[in-house]
């Protein structure tokens, strides 16, 4: 079935940004998750971490102002905020693995009901590349995923068991999708629905989700501003 009213990437990123506390140490994955920084809630100051050894970076520099010794994990030029710090790669991943990072936000190919994540490789073809994803999902206090609820051809991305190669086992804590906000109850291995688009019925949402959606109390309306 198809659902016409869905959130775009900007809106999913906006919703994820609402859950980032003032002073939180945050790592945003390359691509889609980077958008979360644009929607930082006014009055809060998260500190962004990049695997290649920077805490406290800010926006991209103007074109022509790049310093190519100052880049993020996506190899894009960045600028520094007052209070930034540099460190080597071992220290950077000590921050990650050592549980010092408050939240890591990543994209996903699939997330399973027990919190398994597949996001680095589709199959055996091509050149495999993993980067820091496997470290991030095993270290950050919260591991959040941003994703469309279904694939381009309408298949569920939230599944009972991942069919793609795993990035981590039972690691995802919350999923922000184009239709809903869903927590992973890792103790019981199940999805718990927290918010859904108000126009969407439970049945319609369940029909595009590959594992049962449980509820604990009320399901809130997922309300997001118009963004493009």
């Amino acid at each position: 079935m198809s659902i016409s009213d869905t959130l775009n990437q900007e809106q999913i990123a906006w919703r994820a940004a609402q859950d980032i506390a003032d002073g939180a140490y945050v790592n945003l994955g390359i691509g889609f998750p980077e958008k979360v920084a644009q929607y930082t809630v006014e009055g809060r100051e998260p500190i962004f971490h990049t695997e290649n050894g920077v805490l406290g970076f800010g926006r991209a520099p103007a074109r022509g102002e790049e310093d190519w010794d100052l880049i993020n994990a996506g190899k894009k030029a960045i600028t520094l905020k007052p209070g930034a710090a540099f460190f080597d790669h071992a220290t950077s991943f000590a921050m990650i693995r050592g549980g010092h990072l408050d939240v890591a936000i990543l994209g996903a190919l699939q997330v399973a009901a027990n919190g398994d994540l597949a996001n680095w490789r589709v199959g055996d073809k091509g050149v495999p590349a993993v980067g820091g994803a496997m470290d991030l999902v095993n270290g950050a206090k919260r591991v959040a995923v941003l994703t469309d609820h279904v694939t381009r051809d309408g298949q569920p991305k939230l599944v009972s068991k991942c069919s793609f190669p795993l990035t981590g086992v039972a690691c995802v804590t919350r999923i922000y999708t184009s239709l809903a906000v869903i927590d992973v109850d890792r103790d019981q291995g199940r999805f718990v629905l927290r918010e859904k688009l108000p126009t969407l019925s439970m049945e319609a949402l369940q029909a595009v989700t590959g594992a049962p959606l449980f509820t604990e109390g009320d399901v809130a309306d997922l309300i997001v501003p118009e963004l493009s």
Partner: peptide, 23 residues
């Protein structure tokens, strides 16, 4: 994995032949 790569190199320099990681 990137953090494992960094730590394997650090361990090599620090005389630690092996270590355990959740990654």
């Amino acid at each position: 994995p990137q953090g494992t790569l960094a730590e394997r190199i650090r361990a090599g320099g620090a005389g630690i032949p092996a270590f355990y990681t959740p990654t």
